[in-house]
């Protein structure tokens, strides 16, 4: 079997990881929105934490994407 096939399959598999991060990011914003609707006056003060949580969660998706990109273009 051509080793290039394995590279592409691996890149595709790596992208599955982004799905989990997508669920996580959705969770973060969903809970932020739910909490903000309960107590709108406190929502603005937590925006920095929202962005921080989003960034940390998204970092995991980025690792997956990075693996995929490395497999496609750098290996």
């Amino acid at each position: 079997m051509d080793p290039v096939i394995g590279k592409y399959i691996g890149a595709g598999l790596a992208c599955i990881g982004m799905g989990g991060a997508g669920v996580g990011v959705g969770n973060i914003f969903a809970h932020y929105l739910a909490a903000a609707l309960r107590n709108p006056s406190a929502a603005d003060g937590q925006f920095a934490r929202l962005i921080f949580g989003f960034a940390v969660t998204e970092a995991l998706a980025i690792f997956s994407l990075l693996i995929a990109l490395l497999l496609l273009f750098a290996v």
């Binding site: 960034a55 940390v56 998204e58 970092a59 980025i62 690792f63 994407l65 990075l66 990109l69």
Partner: peptide
């Protein structure tokens, strides 16, 4: 630094 940079790049 890895996630910080790759986030923007990606």
């Amino acid at each position: 630094p890895l996630s910080h940079s790759v986030r923007l790049f990606a």
